[in-house]
Computed example of a mutant assay.
Amino acid sequence: MEWRCAGLGWPGGVPVLRWAGGRSSALVYGRVIGFRAVGERRCVGARGNPCPLRAVVPARATQARCPECARLDRAFSVAADGVPDDPRTYRVYLAWFGAGLVKVGITAEERGAVRLLEQGAVAFCWLGRGPLMAARRTEELLRAALGVPDRVPYARKRAVRGALPGWAERARELAELYRRAVVLEGWAEALQRVEFEAVDHSAAFGWGEAVGGAAAGAADGVVRELVDGGVVAGRLVSAAGPDLYLAVAAGRVLVVDTRVLVGWELVGVDAGAAAGGGVTVPVEAVRGAAGGSGSGSGGGGEQDGLF
């Protein structure tokens, strides 16, 4: 049975790895996990349809789609305004990633906070709710008036996680931006303001309740690509957005960007390799920390679960 990765999800506020065909693997903090990449990275298709060519895609791409499937996916994307007549209710939010690093965005109300977890928001608050285009217009107003972006690169999010202030500072920064946002003129009439409540994701990410300081999301390197036969293994200490934090050999912590796992067939490695924290794929530095790679052995045979 092939286990081809479909990405990291946050159903019910907990991280799981998803697989082509609808299966999923629970990710439990403190548990040793490990896998080996097999063959080539393949396009995952678009809008639930498989890629007719099963095209090979670059190892470092953050989306595992060939150009044709990427165009199809984008054409029906809410983010690209591909479905302006979407009848669902949307919410406008402020997402906090670190001191001074906040973005504004929108998400379907039915998804709750899942979108914020997927983005790696350490804390957030809702601003308003209403129809899609009203939410989109208000998002643009707030972005310009508050001087906050609507996108933040994952590299910046990772960089600030190593020195997070505590909960009081997070809530204070969100409260101040909320106060400025709700008094602005120009909100879409159809958008209803939502009462302020700051929500923290420290516990969901495995950092403990409202933790601050360097221990929260510090890492020594990041895995940004896989190679055929390459092994990634270690003890899962936390997760944030698409990132898994693994404790590996010599007391190091590596971030695995699961976006680059998507499209790869993965097989589990034996317990000894995983427990030893084997990493035989390229590792990049994070915030100037020295990156490196260790060694590990792959496991073979039939598997009925990955971890």
Results as ranks from 00 to 15, higher is better:
A163E: 14
V14D: 14
G301Y: 07
I33Q: 05
T258L: 08
G34T: 00
A59S: 09
A271H: 13
V92M: 04
V283P: 00
P15F: 06
V122E: 01
E265G: 09
D200H: 15
A46T: 02
V104N: 10
A70N: 09
V267H: 15
Q192E: 15
A61H: 13
A171M: 02
A46Q: 05
L72M: 13
V194L: 11
G278D: 01
A190D: 15
R74G: 08
L236K: 05
K103T: 09
L17D: 06
R18L: 15
V255N: 00
R180H: 07
G299S: 12
E284Y: 00
A204V: 15
R252N: 04
E118M: 14
V183Q: 13
E302N: 12
G130W: 00
L142C: 00
L72A: 10
R252A: 11
G162E: 07
L8S: 05
V183E: 15
D200T: 03
D228K: 10
R41D: 02
S77F: 07
L8D: 05
G277V: 13
W10V: 05
C69N: 07
Q63T: 10
R287L: 03
R65Q: 14
P50M: 12
D85K: 04
A113H: 09
H201D: 10
G277H: 08
R179M: 00
R31N: 08
A285V: 00
G268L: 10
S297N: 07
L266D: 05
D150I: 02
A250W: 14
A250Q: 15
R179K: 01
R71F: 11
V281T: 01
W167K: 05
L226Q: 00
R115S: 13
V260G: 01
L132H: 06
F307P: 02
Q63A: 11
V232I: 13
K157R: 15
A171E: 14
R111S: 08
A240S: 12
E169H: 08
G98H: 03
V182H: 00
L164D: 00
A285G: 15
R170V: 03
D243G: 06
A145E: 14
A134Q: 03
A239C: 07
G105H: 03
V267W: 10
G251D: 06
R18G: 04
E173L: 03
E118T: 13
R129C: 04
A113L: 09
N49W: 12
G39W: 11
V237Y: 08
R224C: 04
R193E: 06
